[in-house]
Every structure is written in C-alpha cells, then in structure tokens.
C-alpha cells in the first residue's frame, strides 16, 4: 500500500531505515560536537588572551558560531522526529542539566554580541567573563548529560563526569587548532601549546573513562568495549590525537584542525557503538521499540535527508567564504 506521495505506508523504505536514522542522529551530534565544540574552545581560550588577541578571536568566531549551534537543534529535532520517547525521556529525566545547558548556551551566545555593542571597559569585562563561563560550563554539562545517557546512570556519576571533562578538553583542542590555522606568529604558537596539552588531557580522560567503564560495567558497556567497532573508534581516537600533536608541532595547522574534527567524530562514534542497538540504556529501550511508524520515518527520510546534504553544502560555502587568515579587524578582503 502506498499513499499519494508514493511513499510506502506499512513498511520502511529499506529494512534498516531505523538504524540509518540512528546513524543520522549520531551524525548531527558529531557535527555539533566538532563545530560548536570548536566555538566553546575559542570561548575558553579567550580567557588566556589580551585585549588585542580577543578581538582576533571574536573575529574568527563571529560569522560561524550561530550556524554551528544550529547542529544542536538539528540533533534534538532529528531525535524527536525519529525516536520521540528517547527525546522526551532524555530531556525530562535530566531536567536540571538540560535546562542548565540551554542557559549556558544562551549566555555564551549573547555575551560576545553585547560586548561589541559598547566601547566601555567594565562592560566588556563583564561580557567576557560571561562568555568564558558559558563556553566552559556548557560542554562540561553536555558531556555529563551524554555520559549519563550512554551509561544509563544518574547525572553526576564518575563515568558521566569523566565524559564531561573529556568533552571540555576536546573542545579546547578544536578551538586551539582552528585558531592556529587562522592566525600566525605568537598567537598560533601559543595555541599549539594549549592544544597539545588539551589533546593529552583528552586522551588520558578517555582512557580513564574506559577503564572505569570496563570495571564498573554500567549498562553492559564494559563488554562492548572489546568488540571490533569499539576498538576501531578507540584506535582512531589515539591516532587522531597523536597525529594532531605531530601536525601541530610541525606547524601544519590545517591538518591539525582536520584531526581535531576526526577526534570528535571518533568520540561520537564510540558513543554510537556503546549505545547500539539500544538507544536508551536507562530503560533498556532498543531502536526498534521507540522508532516512529514506517510512514512517518519514510516521510522524514524523503523530505529530510536530501536537505541534510544541502546543509552540508551551505557549510562548505560558509567556511570557504570565510577561509583564510583573520586578525583583529576581522576577515580581510
């Protein structure tokens, strides 16, 4: 049976469509972690800079952050469209953390915008503080939330907090590598230093996290760690991390930036491996139990997936437009 749009009503376009959408959800999350993570990193590194460098950082951040943040909305709405019960449980069962995250995002987004509106030292100081605070607290809480989702634990447990710390370090790496690629001289050198340290911290945090998980074995995650996909994600993380440090030291900043994106994808890949085929371990819900009906998912596929490709093209266009070095006066012409 098909409906007027020639979309099958009672079977999925392909049998594995629910799993495909699990993949799409994870992809939007990975894009968010990679791109907005870099913005958080810029926000945290902002604290280490003097007035002149701060202008440079904001100039690099300005044209892209809002578009990057939209990936979070894409993640949330995709999750809602494909797996409504997961969306509602994830958010309502982690109520305070979820609310704190959106407030952190709010502060992070508004502070630099307001800073630029007024030439007043005290005013700018306050905005700067809020910007750094929002940029640090949001990834910490977001990581904690994702950790407790994956491991099916309460919000503030060791594995989830370690996930939060790992995400913060990852964001610093992303921000540092982006800034190193966009600037030169002492700023780029110092970014290399910060980025190398944060990569180290990240890898250590992940190793400790995995050790804790394999001992405590929440949501059966420990036993999954030895399977091939999990090992691949872990090996890829180490390879991207080590490769990134090497590239950074050799001054190949664009390559370094690429590896930091790779690190984000490897991390979310690990999240996906640990979850699949369940999608909400706290209630033991599997993908098949929470996915929407065939018709709804087919419609979302037909209307949504092509658009997602278009969106990727927008980003290529955006980053191309603002390619090249940046300084305190913005992107030169």
């Amino acid at each position: 049976m098909t409906d007027p749009l020639l979309i099958p009503v009672d079977r999925y376009l392909v049998d594995s469509l629910p799993s495909v959408w699990f993949g799409v959800v994870m992809f939007t999350l990975a894009m968010y972690v990679a791109l907005d993570g870099m913005d958080f990193g810029i926000g945290m590194l902002f604290a280490t800079r003097d007035e002149h460098d701060r202008e440079t950082l904001l100039a690099a951040f300005g044209p892209i952050w809002d578009a990057n943040e939209v990936w979070l909305v894409a993640f949330g709405t995709t999750l809602l469209a494909a797996f409504p019960p997961v969306y509602s449980r994830l958010l309502s069962e982690h109520y305070l953390v979820a609310i704190a995250i959106v407030m952190g995002l709010l502060v992070r987004g508004v502070a630099p915008e307001l800073r630029e509106q007024r030439d007043d030292r005290d005013w700018q100081r306050s905005c700067d503080r809020l910007f750094v605070f929002g940029s640090a607290i949001t990834p910490l809480l977001l990581g904690t939330l994702v950790g407790s989702w994956v491991f099916g634990t309460d919000v503030f447990t060791l594995p989830s907090l370690l996930t939060g710390v790992a995400l913060v370090a990852l964001c610093v790496t992303g921000g540092a590598s982006f800034l190193a690629a966009k600037t030169s001289g002492s700023l780029a050198d110092e970014m290399t230093r910060y980025g190398t340290v944060s990569t180290g911290v990240y890898l250590v945090a992940v190793v400790v996290l995995l050790a804790v998980v394999s001992v405590a074995d929440p949501a059966n995650a420990g036993s999954v760690l030895t399977t091939l996909p999990a090992v691949t994600a872990i090996v890829a993380s180490v390879a991207f991390g080590a490769g990134g440090i090497t590239a950074a030291r050799r001054g190949r900043h664009r390559l370094w930036f690429a590896t930091s994106l790779g690190l984000s994808f490897a991390l979310v890949g690990l999240v996906a491996v640990l979850l699949y085929p369940t999608i909400y371990p706290a209630s033991g819900l599997a993908i098949g139990a929470v996915v929407v009906s065939p018709l709804a998912l087919n419609v979302t596929t037909v209307l949504g997936l092509p658009v997602l490709l278009l969106v990727l093209w927008y980003f290529v266009f955006l980053y191309r437009t603002f390619a090249g070095p940046v300084d305190g006066d913005g992107y030169g012409s």
């Binding site: 939209v70 709405t77 809602l80 658009v307």
Partner: peptide, 13 residues
Amino acid sequence: GELIGGPLAFEAK
C-alpha cells in the same frame, strides 16, 4: 512526536 517531530526537524534543516 510522530506528528510534530518531522516538521520541527524540517524547520531546523
């Protein structure tokens, strides 16, 4: 969710 999720996802994308 099945009814509102699709349009909301399209809005974002």
